[in-house]
Each structure stands twice: as C-alpha cells, then as structure tokens.
C-alpha cells in the first residue's frame, strides 16, 4: 500500500492531479447534493459540454484554457439556471440542446485547427497530464473559495433546497442562493473537467449525492457521506488507473458506480429489515 502511494507521488504530474482532484471531488459532492435534490442535475451535464466547447476554442486561438472557459461556463450557468427555473420540461430539452450544440461547435473548431487528436481525446475523457503548475495553484485557490462559500451558506442552502417558497417567505434571497449554487457548480466543473473529461465530470457531481441518499436520513449525513465517498472513490480510481494503466477519469467513474451499487444494496437490505 505504502509502496503504491510512494510510487504514485513520485510522479509530479500525478501529485498535481491528485491535489486538484481531491478538492474537486469534495466540491462536486457537496454541490451535487443540492443540485440533485433540486432536480438540477442536468445543469451540471450541460455545463461540462459548454466547457468542452470553450476549451476547444481557447486551444484553437492559443489562449489560456482556464481564462477562457471560466467566464464562458459561468455565463452559461446563469443562463441554464434561468431556463430551468422558468419551466421544467422545456428547460430539460433546452439544456440538452445547448449542451450538444456547444459540443458540436467545439468539435468543429478543433477539426479546423489540429484535427481530432490526443488533445481532443484528453478534453473529452480527461487527462492527468493536463495540469500545469499555474493550473494547480489556480484550481486549488478556486476550490478553497468554493468550499468556504459553501460552508458559510450551508444553512441557507438547506432551506432553499428543501423549500424555496418558505425560504423566500422568511426573507432568504433564494434567487441569490440559486445563482451562487450555479456559479460554484460552474467553477467546479471547469476545474474538474481537465482531469475527469467533459463527458465524465458530471458523474462526480451526481454519483456521490445519489450514493449517500441510499442510506442517509439527514441532510448533514448525506453531505458528509457524499463528501467522504467522493474523495475515497477518486483516490481509489486514481490508484486503479495507476496500477492497471487505465484511463484516470473513467476509472474514477467506475469506482463511483460500484460504490453506488453497494450503497443501493445496503439501503435495500436496510429497508427490508425495517419492514421485516
């Protein structure tokens, strides 16, 4: 075990990916609980596709990837939130529309410049080689901001997630907190996308929340379990990817899937025991 860890951390690029990845996994899990409960899971998925489009354009123009994708995805987040607040069914379709359009534009832009190559593959399915030194500093700083804001707003987030009408009636600025949620989600997705890939990053948001909800009864319990599950799954996924030379992002998702199934089984057995 120790050998494995020593082996992993002897590669600087892997150490960087682990640092950022663990923080992203933590942020994604915490935000994911609210997103899933508010039926906003699709926003996460839509944003990652928009992020892919932004990244491709940034690369084609030779700009810094994070500097371009952060503002684009943040704007997209507000836009998607608007859409889903106005009407739920139409919003669903509109998000799918925007997501696939952004993806298509991204693919076309890349095909103009470099053609479909390893870079594009990296955007779509993640690459642990993607993080430069500056990226790491920027990503860590952003993750810490996301975490701090989340902790400070935890009680309000709960109220807004559980019952928006009541929260608003008792003077909580629900619009502000919805926007904050969208903003933090956008930042988390942009940071995480490099490692996990545009196609796979939304699983980091959705899986831990759903996994924790199988067994936990309280909101706080769900939050803590989701955070722990997410970080553990990320770690195990990366280790598996290192040991068996598997793609990193995909390994993390598969580990998440396995843990979800285990928790679902545990929840099922617990439910049976309660009735039996």
């Amino acid at each position: 075990m120790l050998e494995l860890l020593a082996g992993m951390f002897s590669y600087p690029f892997l150490t960087r990916a682990m640092c950022v990845g663990v923080l992203v996994a933590l942020c994604a899990a915490l935000l994911g609980v609210s997103l899933v409960l508010k039926r906003y899971s699709m926003i996460g998925d839509g944003l990652s596709h928009v992020g892919f489009g932004a990244l491709s354009i940034a690369m084609a123009l030779g700009l810094a990837p994070l500097a371009v994708s952060v503002p684009v995805v943040v704007i997209a987040a507000f836009f998607l939130l608007r859409i889903s607040e106005n009407s739920q069914i139409k919003g669903d379709a509109a998000i799918a529309l925007i997501a696939s359009s952004a993806l298509a534009i991204g693919v076309i832009v890349t095909s103009f410049t470099s053609g479909m190559n390893a870079d594009v593959y990296g955007y779509m399915f993640g690459s642990i080689l993607a993080m430069s030194e500056e990226d790491v500093v920027f990503s860590v700083a952003l993750s810490v901001v996301v975490l701090c804001l989340f902790v400070l707003c935890y009680n309000k987030m709960f109220a807004v997630t559980f019952d928006e009408a009541f929260a608003q009636a008792t003077g909580v600025h629900t619009k502000f907190y919805n926007m904050l949620l969208a903003l933090l989600t956008a930042l988390t997705i942009v940071i995480g996308m490099r490692i996990m890939g545009a196609m796979l990053i939304s699983s980091l948001i959705i899986f831990p929340a759903l996994t924790a909800m199988r067994v936990c009864k309280s909101f706080r319990g769900v939050m803590i379990t989701a955070a722990a599950v997410s970080v553990a799954c990320f770690f195990v996924g990366m280790a598996a990817s290192f040991l068996f030379s598997l793609p990193a992002g995909a390994s993390v998702v598969v580990v998440n899937l396995v843990v979800f199934l285990l928790f679902a089984l545990a929840g099922f057995l617990k439910g049976r025991a309660a009735f039996g």
Binding site: F162, A212, C216, K217, F219
Partner: peptide
C-alpha cells in the same frame, strides 16, 4: 422535491 428529501425532522 420534498417527497424523497433526506432531511431529519430536527433540520427541517
């Protein structure tokens, strides 16, 4: 949203 919401009575 509330039908399957994981929150303890105390939290609510």
């Amino acid at each position: 949203v509330q039908k399957d919401f994981p929150a303890s009575v105390w939290e609510v």
